[in-house]
Computed example of a mutant assay.
Amino acid sequence: MNAADLLPLLRGLTWTVALTAGAFFIGAVLGVPLLAARRSRLWLLRFMAMSVIQIVRAIPPILWLFIIFFGLGMGVMPISPFNAALMGLGLIAAANLAEIYRGAVASIHFGQWEAAAALDLGRWSTFRDIVAPQAFRVALPSAASYLIGLMKETAVASTIGVAELAYQGNQLSQLTFRGLEVFALVGLFYVLLSLPIAWLSRVADGYLRAKVAR
């Protein structure tokens, strides 16, 4: 393969990174209110949040993309393939990260909530200043693992025409008839993307553990 053949893959790589980062950001933000609703004292709100999370996680990502792009995009409002993929993967990320957050918060001993209440701290202040910093450290490894999985899931966006890495690899293999080389290189790109995420996660986790130990 020559340098010209690499250009489409590099363009696809940028779309993969953009889609991964955008969907993860959406999920990280929307996961917080989902967590709050999931832990609400109102049973109806808890039930609704739990239902949303279970439904979103039960439906395959490719089907969500079809629903948004071919359903909403063609029947309700025009939407580009990239934005449809961003919405779909962001929604899925929100449901999964909400569960990661919930597990992290649940790992914090209830005695800390009781101690904060004894000090007359409000529920929000307790969560923000005491529980959340500890839960963040617990959630970090799982969130990083999910981010790597999300990056791989972006390949389904090729089914609705997003020119990300897998899409460009498929196009290039059909043009060059060198599928083994092309997809081996595509796989290498995914590995190279995942390694920094895993490394940064370990570094951040080690830093936070050391900070707590002091």
Rank of each mutant, 00 (worst) to 15 (best):
I79A: 08
A28N: 01
I26P: 06
I53R: 00
I68L: 13
L192R: 01
L180P: 01
G206C: 02
G111F: 13
S80T: 15
S173H: 10
W43D: 14
A95R: 01
L165M: 02
A58N: 14
G161E: 03
L172I: 11
L192Q: 02
R38P: 03
L150R: 11
I148G: 09
I79Y: 01
F110V: 13
F25G: 15
V203N: 00
S145W: 00
V138T: 14
A3S: 14
I100C: 01
S125F: 00
A157G: 09
F47L: 14
G22I: 07
F66S: 08
S158A: 15
F127P: 02
S194E: 02
K152A: 07
R39V: 04
L7T: 14
I148S: 08
A118E: 05
S40F: 08
Q174G: 12
A144D: 09
T20R: 03
Y167L: 00
S40H: 06
A166I: 05
P196L: 10
G122K: 04
R137Y: 03
M87A: 15
P60A: 12
Q134I: 12
M151G: 01
R128G: 05
S158N: 11
V138M: 01
S142L: 06
R46M: 10
I26C: 13
S40Q: 03
P78E: 12
T20A: 12
I26L: 15
A157R: 07
G122A: 05
V212S: 13
F136T: 13
L121R: 12
V203T: 10
L35P: 04
L13Q: 07
L72C: 08
E99D: 13
L19Q: 08
F47Y: 05
M77Q: 01
A85D: 06
T20K: 04
R11E: 14
A18R: 04
A132Q: 01
L121T: 08
V76C: 03
A135V: 09
S158E: 13
Y207E: 10
L91C: 13
A166M: 15
Q54S: 14
A204V: 06
L30H: 03
M87D: 00
E164M: 12
Q171R: 13
G90W: 11
L65N: 11
I26R: 02
I55W: 11
A204H: 04
A210P: 06
I160D: 00
W113F: 14
Q168P: 01
D129S: 14
F189W: 11
K211S: 10
W199S: 02
M1T: 13
A155D: 10
A198R: 11
R202Y: 10
S145C: 07
R214L: 10
H109N: 15
A166R: 05
N96K: 06
I130A: 03
S173Y: 02
L72I: 15
I79H: 03
L9F: 01
N2T: 12
H109L: 02
R41C: 04
P196C: 04
W113C: 03
G22V: 07
S107Y: 06
R178W: 00
S107G: 09
D129I: 07
S201Y: 06
A157F: 09
T16P: 09
I197R: 00
Q171T: 13
W124K: 02
R137V: 11
M48G: 11
N96H: 14
A23F: 07
P133F: 12
Y207F: 13
A3I: 15
G73Y: 07
L45C: 11
R137K: 12
R214K: 11
K211D: 05
A213Y: 07
A184V: 09
G73E: 09
Y101R: 07
